[in-house]
Design a protein around this nucleic acid. Sequence first.
DNA 1: TGGCAGGATTACT
DNA 2: AGTAATCCTGCC
Length: 308
Amino acid sequence: MISTRIPDDLLDLNHTLLSGQAFGWNEINGFWYGVAYGQVLKIKQDGDRLLWDASDVDNTHDLIRKYFKLDENLPKLLERFEDLDFFIQRAMTRFRGLRLLNQQPWECILSFLCSSHSNIKSINNMINNLSMKFGERIEFDGMTFHTIPSPEALSQASANDLLSCKVGYRANYIKKVAHEVSEGIVDINALMALEYDVAKSRLLTSENGHKIMKGVGPKVADCILLFSMEKNEAFPCDIWISRVVLANYNHLLDNDLLASLSRSIERKIPLSGGTYLKIGDVMRRYFGPNAGYAQQYLYALIRQESGR
DNA sequence: TGGCAGGATTACT
DNA sequence: AGTAATCCTGCC
């Protein structure tokens, strides 16, 4: 077991792991267990100490630093939001230590392919099912864990096997995207090197009439960019964030934008592409280049306030 | 127990 | 450009 000191305003493990950005974390006997970068990680916070162990002992200091993005100066970054409004202030106070994670892109792509028309509990289920069926087994602490399945494994999976993981209509997306990634039709490393705007348009692009990365729309693309490609200006806007924007930030929107946002929420229909894009731009202008952090705090607060 | 929550695609305007 | 119907599962 490795232990280091970390003040609680720099990291709050519970807030971070429960914030809907990563899936498959479980609390067992006071420790969080999950898979990060292909190995089982066991971790807990005890006062100002962080204690952890991992199934593969190599470089776990680096793994922790990278996964939790500990090189990013959180308090400094949040200073930018402090004088903006009471809502973001309340979110920052209540969820002190909430951090963005830096997941592996493939795990993030798979998770958010599953997220469409779904919810956190279901996504957890789907990821667990997929990992148990297609991932690699790891024995650790007398328990059995499974890694996130590789693109290769999923691209060769049968439709029935995928459907048995309860992913529903997303099975086609998963198989197709897994194929594109494993064959290098989509080059994840090249994507990561691009700037936010460019990387996003690549994720959403069509080539000679058909869409690559089917199942990845604007919101899923923003999640992938924010949670696994270090694009902090990404501002994923799902139904919850839409409600926050309507309730607390409507004064930032012009009349047309406000009208289409309210209409979407009232009639429970997705934001149109143009509306989604404009809301992101408005929020980026307001919160600045780390708008994605603000989004994560707002999300945590609105979910808590509506009892999720 | 049926109605509802949840996002992307497709076909249409 | 925006819009309506469809995809599937789990929860209450």
